[in-house]
Structure formats: C-alpha cells, structure tokens
Design a protein around this nucleic acid. Structure first.
Length: 274
DNA sequence: CGGGCGGCCTGGAGGC
DNA sequence: TGCCTCCAGGCCGCCC
C-alpha cells in the first residue's frame, strides 16, 4: 500500500491527534507479522507514556514517547493504521491496538502481514538494522540532479530498480518510480549509470514533484489506503501510466505497455520513454 | 559485490 | 454460484 507519500499523509493526519496523548494500554491481538510482535517490549516501552513526536523515516512511521522510546511501524503492502473510538467494533487482521487516554484506540491492521511494529530506544534507532543502511530522503533536502548522479554512478541496474532500492534512495516504490520515469521521459529498463546528466536533472525534479503532489492529494488509494482518520487519497486520478496497460498515453496516445522487472510491474509509453 | 528472483501472506478481480 | 489463476503499494534472503 504505502510509499513515502502515503506514510507522510498518515503521519500528518495522526500528529495533531496523538501529540500529548498517553498510551494507557498496549494490546497485542495477533503477533504474526513479518517479524513477530514482542508484547513485553512494546508494553515496557510504551505503556503509560505520552506521545511526544510523530516522525517518518523512509516508509517507517516513528511514534516517539516519553522517556526515550519509539514505536516503529511499517505498513508493508496492506497495513493500515487508524484511530477509532474505543467502542468501535474489532475488525479482522487487527494485530496491535493502543488504547489512549480520551477513549480512542490506535489500531494496526494488516491482512497480508508484510508489515511490522516494534519498540526501541529512540537514541539507538540509527544503529537499528532496519535503519542503518537506508539511503537519503528524497524530499529533505529535495533530491537534485547532482545527488541523483551520485546515486546512479557506475550502476548497471535498470533505473527503475535503482530508484526503488532503499539503500540508495528511500521512499520511492513501484507507483512513484513508474510515474517519475514517465514524467522524465526515461525508459524503466535504461541502465542507471548510462543516463546523461541533463536527464538525471529532469528525473530528480520529477521524483520530487510527484511525491509532493501525491502528499498534497492525500496519497494514492488504489484499493484501501486511508489516512489515520479514514480519509482516502485522490492521487490515483492523477496517475499517468501506473496500472494503465493498454490505455492511451496521456501525452501521445500510444498504448501504455507493461513490463516485468525484478518481478514487479512497470508501465511505460514506448514512444515517450527512451 | 551487484543484480535478479522467489518467497512471504491474504484477498480481490476476472475468466470459464 | 463456484473454482482457478493472476495480481497487488515492500522487503529480505538466496542465488549466480
């Protein structure tokens, strides 16, 4: 489900509702996620503490609480994190629920179970295995052609794979890599290290623009993404090629093609993208 | 080592 | 109405 824009939209939607709230109770309802939930650690680090900050790194949402602990959440493909009244009925695939003062519950659901949640010391997150090998953020500071040139230097991999490699650049997944390459007029299979600098300038600008526009639109809701309060995104109507195999290219009208790279679908216009 | 692929899961969509 | 296949926003580990 979520790439950088969706996680950022989620963060912004929850921030005003969570800051200052106390976590009264931590309930692990079903520990089976990509990494099993550790109820003891979650309770020890979170229970009784107030939320002091909501941050995002890559596609991880970070909930900082008092006394130097952080709840780390990754939504995988199908994870959803929403705030609901404590009286709201339970729903299937609810793995973790945090009861807050004021009578609400923050709950993590994840049917496909590719997500994960754990608590750790805030000061040690940089050395955590989930974080220590992550590349730079694309929006902070905004990616430019020089930074992108350094990222792709010497790589023989397809540019699309490089954009989606979190050890080189975080936050860009299948949808936004596909859309940025369309905007920049670059074929997804082009060898990354062989792309001219002028085109890298365009690609960097396209990545920044598509991510910012998607955040502004509340994210992309293909199936079930919502923010923390249940609102769907609207960027799906602005997608130029993603998911549009056989439909006309919005720029030239040629049929959009689909290609599989590293077992992921890419969509592109063979006339506009070289 | 870089790069590619399968596997992890469930559920929705579409063909027959 | 089923039953089957394919496909899905991410990531890791194994292979060459």
């Amino acid at each position: 489900m979520p790439e950088l824009p969706e996680v950022e939209v989620l963060r912004r939607s929850l921030e005003p509702r969570l800051l200052g709230r106390r976590i009264e109770h931590v309930e692990v309802r079903s520990p089976a996620l990509r990494e099993p939930l550790d109820g003891r650690s979650l309770r020890r680090r979170l229970a009784g503490r107030r939320v002091v900050a909501l941050r995002r790194r890559s596609k991880y949402l970070l909930v900082d609480v008092e006394a130097g602990s952080t709840l780390v959440i990754h939504l995988g493909m199908s994870g959803r994190l929403t705030l609901a009244p404590a009286t709201a009925p339970r729903e299937p695939h609810e793995h973790l629920a945090l009861r807050l003062d004021g009578g609400e519950r923050l709950r993590l659901r994840d049917p496909r179970r590719f997500g994960l949640a754990f608590a750790a010391a805030t000061a040690k997150l940089g050395r955590d295995p989930h974080f220590e090998r992550l590349g730079p953020e694309p929006l902070d500071p905004p990616l430019d052609g020089a930074a992108l040139a350094a990222i792709v230097a010497g790589s023989r991999a397809p540019i699309k794979a490089v954009l989606m490699d979190a050890s080189r650049l975080v936050g860009v997944g299948n949808i936004y890599a596909t859309e940025a390459l369309f905007r920049a007029g670059i074929h997804p299979a082009r060898r990354a290290g062989a792309i001219a600098r002028a085109r890298l300038d365009r690609l960097a600008a396209a990545i920044v623009a598509v991510l910012e526009q998607a955040i502004h639109a509340g994210g992309t809701t293909l199936n079930d993404f919502t923010d923390g309060l249940g609102s769907a995104g609207e960027f799906q109507v602005s997608l130029a090629v993603y998911g549009g195999e056989g439909e006309p290219c919005p720029r030239c009208g040629a049929p959009i093609r689909r290609l599989v790279q590293s077992s992921r679908s890419s969509f592109y216009c063979a006339r506009c993208q070289r």
